[in-house]
Amino acid sequence: MLLSAVYIYFYCIVNIIYDIKLPMQISMDCIEKIANLAMLALSKTELETYKKDLENILNYVKVLESVDTSKVEPIRCVIPIELNERVDEVHEKIGESSLRNSAGFENNLIKVPKII
């Protein structure tokens, strides 16, 4: 992860100063960390495939760097309206029928792995 952060930093600096397009690269360490953050158990083959896929996609999205956005505000909402807030009241209880969708449903509760 740290190596990738350093690479991205270096990549941006080189790009800005020298206008050189370096190919985006992600280390195996980085893709493993991302998979861990995303709570995905992936095989080595999967990690290698996704590493290549992400590099391809990240190389493609570099096109965004061609536009100076230093004076642009990031978008908040596409349709400029106030968000609606409903009254915080229970309308329909779905309770047990919803709990039943868990594979761990037992006695109107959901069984989870041991914590303590």
Binding site: M1, S4, A5, I8, Y9, C12, I34, L37, V61, L64, E65, V67, T69, V72, E73, P74, I75, V78
Partner: peptide, 17 residues
């Protein structure tokens, strides 16, 4: 992720604007 948030996510939201 922390090191990419500005350079990717915020950048994309600005382009969306």
């Amino acid at each position: 992720s922390a090191s990419c948030y500005d350079s990717y996510y915020i950048k994309a939201q600005k382009i969306r604007s």
